[in-house]
Nucleic acid binder design. Structure first.
Lengths: 197, 197, 197, 197
DNA sequence: AATGAATGAGTTTTCATTCAT
DNA sequence: TATGAATGAAAACTCATTCAT
């Protein structure tokens, strides 16, 4: 029955996430994962051909969750004028990072590359390209020589600030979030639209 | 003889760095490290109580190297007016990241935390504090409400941009470096000193 | 319904044979066998109490096929005079080995003994006894001291030559078969009836 | 120290041989082998990169033992006239098979191929070639059309008879050995030199 | 101090078999 | 009866660490 399968797979992914967060990648042995999931190791290997595949599936699931939460808002942002658009993007980035931030951290910081490395760079390249397109649309408002470079600067900055703030508990109240969004927006918008006299 | 000790320790650290960079943390077994260093595993354990301690020593050595290269320039920067000071800081950050960037990457991305995590956060906190002090000195030129938050924003931004640029080969020529420094400086200075009329 | 049973059993045996030949004993897991047979593992265990029993059944089926092809001709052989009888036996042996030789090879070379070993020896003993009886009938033409020993020599020799020739591609044309039969016959007959002056 | 290593390696090979003989290839797990050898699994893998390599080394050792026992006598045989030469060869073959016959059996019957298969065929091809050369030297005494085919027939026959006799306890006394050698020699010589008028 | 052989707990993975549906 | 998800003992193999020499 398919229901039974799904329950098992979910339990395995959930257990993997939990152990990864609590004990780090090194302690996450397949036997421990299976045990915590309440199934046998055999079942783990029935659904995932290797430990690597299991972790990859978890990454995919996490990315999917993030994307789902973000996709709609991202579309909105693109339609807004620059200053509001950037604020929206920053807000979305914060939201994205607040979905299971500890898991996000382990997944980005501790998983050994293999095929992953390529993926992460691709992911970033996509972000750069997306943002570059957005900038293109507002080219006349912007004062930067190299749009590609500007996209790199903005994306990297937003990502770093939201990531670091969320993970290192810089954010512990709605006010703190608000402040972070304000500052980040001002930083990026000030860079894109120098308001010099 | 102390000389012999130092040679052995250096060889071990060097071997560790080389294997870490070439093959990643997973392949870096103590036996392989000792072999590449030209000593026996026994000797490795004569000088380092555990693998973790060995890696920690390597991190320390790398940090020391970076600090040594940077300390003087950092002192200079503090004495400069804001715009030039920030440019100096960014330049120094780029330089720092160009010291064995591959090792830097492995050390920051692949080493499992353990006691390390604390250290890294401490390291960052130090940077924040340092920069906050610097901002304090230029408080009257600056238009930010929360100096601590501003320090966090600036340090995180500079760190992220230089780190990412170096590691992802955004930097492959002197012109590219120049451009990155320009943009980063403009980003940060524009944030600290909004030139709005 | 008994029909359905037979179809399932046949499919299982066929699948076992195919996997055994294509991938060797080690790769022949019961799950793979069931899948190739188009039934569930559960069904496999409905008809065979264990993997061993399944393989045993396959061996029996193969032996049965060989016997069926051979029984008639064997009876003929016994009625013939010695020289022609031996030639007939050799011919029959070649034929027997040409029934799915790859399966024969796997079955004789790769299957771990267990209860099988006994069987194989029994099988051989039967052959010895049969041939000894045949020799008995032609005792006066034969110049050997120990009929039992002679039977062992002849049976082993014929078996080895036909087996090896078929498996190691010594036989790839009708001429080659003819030649092999000639030589083997001459070898055995020359041994049984020394034509010394 | 090299002495310590050799002792360990020998113990491992010896344990492998014993388990292989007593319990068959399937029961011969590396942990059981190490245990019986009185060393840890780790030591096993210090000297042999895989279970396969361990078994390969055992095969090599066995072959070496056999070869050492046989090499000298083989050289003698080549110098003898045909009838005596063949007898010598058969005697040597029996001797060879009496060196740890049970191990020989497991090694030839139960070890899954992999790289081995090729080796075994090569080994046989060498024997054929060697014997063909020997026959060449006595060409004028021999009455066979195809020397290569004759070599195949003789080598296969001698090998099969001695192998089977030794393994299936056809040989349990010096008289039995004598008888087997006599019969085999007569079989082969009769084939090579038909003494028909 | 140095060596490197030895250790053994722990890891990933497989597969014959069972049993709830 | 048939299904196939689930089981779990056991296999091959790794590697940080120890210790006799």
């Amino acid at each position: 029955m398919q229901e039974r399968s799904r329950v098992t797979v979910d339990a395995l992914l959930e257990a993997t996430a939990r152990i990864l967060v609590k004990e780090g990648f090194d302690q996450a042995s397949t036997n421990r994962i299976a045990e915590l999931a309440g199934v046998s190791v055999g079942s783990l290997y029935q659904y995932f051909p290797s430990k690597e595949a299991l972790v990859a599936a978890l990454i995919d699931r996490h990315n999917e969750e993030v994307m789902q939460a973000v996709r709609g808002e991202l579309a909105d942002a693109v339609a807004l004028p620059l200053a509001q658009g950037v604020r929206k993007l920053v807000t979305v980035a914060v939201e994205a990072h607040r979905i299971d931030p500890k898991l996000h951290r382990v997944l980005t910081e501790q998983i050994p590359p293999l095929g992953r490395l390529e993926n992460r760079e691709n992911f970033n390249r996509q972000n750069y390209a997306l943002f570059a397109t957005y900038l293109e649309r507002h080219r006349d408002e912007i004062r930067v020589a190299d749009l590609g470079l500007a996209a790199f600067v903005c994306v990297t900055t937003i990502e770093a600030l939201t990531h670091t703030a969320v993970l290192h508990q810089k954010i512990d109240s709605d006010d703190a979030i608000e402040a972070l969004i304000n500052e980040t927006t001002r930083l990026v918008v000030g860079y894109l639209i120098p308001q010099s006299s």
